[in-house]
Computed example of a mutant assay.
Amino acid sequence: MGLVEKRAIKSFQDTKFPELEKEINSIAGYPIEFSVEWDTLAAPDYADRYEEYFTDIYFKPIIETFKFIAADDMGKEALKEILKKIHIKNDGTVTSEVRAYSIDGGVLTVNHDPVVNAHHIDYRTKKLTEILSEKM
């Protein structure tokens, strides 16, 4: 990861991430711990798109899924029972929503390439909603 990527990730961490984290916690109705492997999200030649792509790939599907699940008290309680932490990473092997999500021991892991299929928000939201709903 070069200086351009480091600066872009730092900018996202300092500006956009706190807003997204706050929004997700507000929708859920309780504080959720976040763990992000920032270094794994660096993609050469895409630093100027990190804010858009990281938001679309990692956060918008969570926000939309939580809006659906936590629409009422029953959903909020069910979410709180199964989810304590969100872990975001890119191990370099996942470019599709089919394998991007897993939940184990209260930890939702989001493992997805940081640039491929960035605009497939609806597909990722649908898959994440299915996975979480099945655990409730």
Rank of each mutant, 00 (worst) to 15 (best):
D72V: 02
D104C: 02
S26H: 13
D48M: 06
D45Q: 15
E33K: 07
E37H: 11
E77I: 00
N90A: 13
H119L: 05
P61S: 12
D122G: 10
K85V: 00
I103N: 02
T129P: 01
S35Y: 11
E21F: 07
H112D: 08
L108V: 01
I57R: 05
Y101V: 00
D73S: 11
D56Q: 15
A100G: 02
D14M: 01
G105V: 00
F54A: 06
E51R: 05
E64H: 05
M1K: 10
K85M: 02
Y58H: 15
Y58S: 11
G92Q: 13
I103G: 01
S26C: 06
D91S: 09
V107I: 02
A118Q: 14
T40E: 12
F59K: 13
L108N: 00
N117F: 09
V115C: 00
P61I: 05
I103V: 00
K85C: 03
D91A: 14
I9L: 11
E23L: 13
E21W: 10
I57E: 09
F17Y: 15
E37G: 05
P114L: 03
A43L: 07
V107E: 10
K6E: 10
E21S: 08
T40Y: 07
Y53S: 01
F17P: 03
V98S: 15
E134P: 06
L3E: 04
N90M: 05
V94A: 02
V36S: 09
G29C: 04
G75V: 01
Y30L: 00
P114K: 10
L83C: 04
R99A: 10
A8P: 03
K76G: 04
D45G: 08
L128P: 07
I57Y: 14
D122P: 07
T95R: 14
T65H: 03
G29Y: 04
E51W: 10
L20Q: 11
N90D: 14
K135Y: 09
V107Y: 10
I24P: 00
S96L: 13
L3V: 02
E81Y: 08
P114W: 08
K135M: 12
D56H: 15
Y58I: 10
K85R: 15
T95C: 13
R49Y: 12
D104N: 03
T40W: 08
E23G: 01
S96P: 07
Q13V: 12
T95P: 04
N25P: 07
V115R: 01
E130C: 03
I131M: 10
G2N: 14
R124C: 15
K80Q: 11
I32M: 01
I82M: 10
T40R: 11
I131D: 13
L79S: 14
S11L: 07
E52N: 14
